[in-house]
């Protein structure tokens, strides 16, 4: 039975096994490769997407869990050609190095700001547990505060 999901505002009927992780359905079935595979055990967060606005790690989330829900990936974060405030802050502070983890980090931060519009440092520490091997954490923190303070495109 097909799984009905909306991805970045577009409806899809996914013909995949219900237990196939959402990550692989997004990447291989829908061709949305911005969401990355890092560990397969929800440890690193490279695969983070928004499920009905909340950040989830898609590498262990069965596709069936997304049935009837709205998924936002990094490709769908910009609205009407305008980058999301987190993306803008990421460019302003030149956060990415290799960039591989950053789709997931940006989605996790977008999810955090949707829940807590102005997070404290402690709330950032508790809410963002993604792994970045290039070590861009200090810039991430600055960019998160900057995005939280900015007005403009919401998620």
């Amino acid at each position: 039975m097909a799984i009905a999901i909306s991805v970045n505002g577009k409806e899809h009927a996914l013909d995949v096994e219900p237990e196939m992780p959402l990550l692989w359905a997004l990447r291989e079935t829908l061709g949305l490769t911005g969401t990355k595979f890092g560990c397969g055990i929800s440890a690193c967060g490279a695969c983070t997407v928004l499920l009905d606005g909340r950040a989830v790690r898609s590498c262990t989330l069965p596709s069936s869990a997304a049935n009837g829900k709205h998924v936002t990936t990094i490709e769908g974060l910009a609205q009407d050609g305008a980058l999301h405030k987190v993306q803008r802050a990421w460019i302003a502070h030149q956060v990415p190095q290799c960039g591989y983890c950053q789709s997931g980090v940006i989605m996790a931060v977008a999810g955090l700001l949707a829940q807590i519009p102005k997070p404290t440092d402690d709330e950032i520490d508790a809410g963002i547990t993604n792994i970045c091997r290039c070590g861009t954490f200090a810039r991430m923190r600055t960019a998160i505060h900057d995005a939280a303070d900015s007005v403009g495109v919401a998620s």
Partner: peptide, 21 residues
């Protein structure tokens, strides 16, 4: 100057080996 590779790394369009089809 801003790094030339960064815009593609915030919108998901940057291509790594795993993304190739």
């Amino acid at each position: 100057p801003t790094r030339l590779d960064i815009p593609s790394k915030v919108d998901g369009s940057a291509k790594y080996a795993i993304d190739f089809t």
